[in-house]
Design a protein around this nucleic acid. Structure first.
Lengths: 208, 208
DNA sequence: GCGATAAATGAACGATCGTGCTATTTATCC
DNA sequence: GGATAAATAGCACGATCGTTCATTTATCGC
C-alpha cells in the first residue's frame, strides 16, 4: 500500500469519527486537517472538494456497515434466524465499529433528506439497498413458513427500520439503558405478530 | 403587539423554515437576515447569540407541535381513540404546519445527540415529555381494557416513535407514496399485537 | 409636533470556510 | 545515490461565520 493510500485511509477514518459526533456539516476540510495533523491543502489534495470528501465518507460508512452488519449476518441460516441476526448486528453497529458517536446514516438521512445532490442520492440508494436486503430475507422466511405468507415484507422491513431509530434515539439521545431490551423485544413483537399462525387466530374483521 | 414582537415572530417563522430544510447548522444569523430582509445585526439584536437563536427556534418548534398535535389530540375520547388520533396527527405535522421540509426535531435529535449543551438538554426534555404523553394515553387505554394490561406502555410508546421515524424517512428521504399507509398499518399491527385478548391467544412459552 | 425611547442599520473585527497556486519536502525507481 | 515523480506544506484569496459598536430611522407618549 502506497503512502497516499495510507494517509487517505487515515483521513477517512478520522473523518468518520468527526461525522459520528458532529454530523456531516461538521466534517470540514480544515477541521479534518487539524485532527489528522495534516495541512489543509494536504487534505484538499486527497479529495478535490469538500463535497467529494463528504461523499467519500458516506461511501466509507457504507462499506463499514457492509462488513460489520451484512456480511456476518449472511453467515446465519436463511430465514428468521438470519433476519434476527441482521437486526441484532444493526443495533449499535457504529459503536462496535469504533465510532465515538452515533450512526453516520442517521445523521446523513436528517441532513440530506431535503437537499438535492450527490450525497442525497447516495443515501437514498444505500438505504434502498439495505431495506431491500431486509425484504429478501423476510421473504425467505416466508417461503420457509416462519412468517405469514400474506404479510407485506416491505412493511415489516420498514417497521424494523423504525425500531432501529428507536434504539438509536433511546441509546444516544436519551441514554436510556433499556434501549437494547426495548428494541430486541420490539423485534420479537413484530415477528410474532407476523407469525405464520397469526391469521388463523384473528381474521380481519374479527371482533374482540 | 409591538413592532419588536412582530419582527421577532417573523424571524422565528422564517428560521423554522430554514431548519426544516437545512437543519440547525444551516440556521445562521446571516442566512436568516438575508431571507427575512433584515440586517445581520438586526437579527443578532433579537437573539443575542447564534446559540440562543437556535434554542429559541427549538422552543418555537415545540410550541408549534403542541398546538398542531397534542392539543387537538386531547379532544379525542380517552384511550385507544386518543392514542390513534395522537399518532395520526404526529405523522406529517411539520408539513401541515406549513414547514417546507422535514420535522425540526428529527434534525435536532440527529445534530445534538452527541453534543453537550442547552440545545441537547432541551431536545431530551421535550422528547421525554412527548413520550411520556404517549405512555399516559396508552395506560389510559389499558385501564379501559382496550390494551393488554400486562403490556409495557413505555415499549409501545417507543415503538410508535420508531414508526414516526419510519414515516419520516419514507416520506421525505425516499419519497415513497406508501409512507402514510405503512405507518398507519404499522400502528394497527402494534395495537392489535397488544390487544387485551392477545395474551389469551398466545401465552409466553407457547410453541407454534 | 416633539422629545424620548425602541428598533434596525452599517461598518468593521477576527475566525473559519472552501479553493487555487506555488514551493518544498518526501518516496520511489533505475 | 541521484533523478524523477508523488505527496504534502505554505500562502493567499474571497466568502461567510458570529460579534461589537456607533449611528440612523421608526415609534410612541405627551
Amino acid at each position: 500500500m502506497t503512502k497516499h493510500d495510507h494517509t487517505h485511509a487515515r483521513l477517512l477514518q478520522q473523518g468518520l469519527e468527526i461525522i459520528s459526533v458532529n454530523g456531516f456539516a461538521g466534517a470540514t476540510i480544515g477541521g479534518l486537517a487539524e485532527r489528522a495533523m495534516v495541512s489543509k491543502s494536504g487534505v484538499f489534495a486527497h479529495f478535490g472538494s469538500a463535497e467529494a470528501l463528504r461523499l467519500e465518507l458516506l461511501k466509507t460508512a457504507a462499506e463499514l456497515a457492509q462488513r460489520e452488519i451484512v456480511e456476518p449476518a449472511l453467515l446465519a441460516p436463511a430465514g428468521l434466524p438470519r433476519l434476527r441476526r441482521l437486526f441484532e448486528l444493526w443495533l449499535g453497529w457504529a459503536s462496535r465499529s469504533g465510532l465515538p458517536g452515533g450512526c453516520p446514516f442517521v445523521s446523513a438521512a436528517a441532513e440530506f433528506d431535503d437537499v438535492e445532490g450527490a450525497s442525497r442520492d447516495f443515501v437514498v440508494a444505500t438505504l434502498y439497498e439495505f431495506i431491500g436486503l431486509f425484504i429478501s430475507v423476510i421473504e425467505e422466511a416466508q417461503k420457509l413458513q416462519e412468517l405469514d405468507a400474506k404479510l407485506e415484507s416491505k412493511s415489516l422491513a420498514w417497521q424494523l427500520f423504525g425500531l432501529y431509530n428507536t434504539h438509536h434515539a433511546m441509546q444516544r439521545l436519551m441514554r436510556d439503558p433499556q434501549a437494547d431490551r426495548v428494541a430486541l423485544q420490539g423485534f420479537e413483537t413484530l415477528v410474532q405478530a407476523s407469525g405464520p399462525d397469526w391469521s388463523d387466530r384473528r381474521e380481519p374483521g374479527d371482533s374482540p
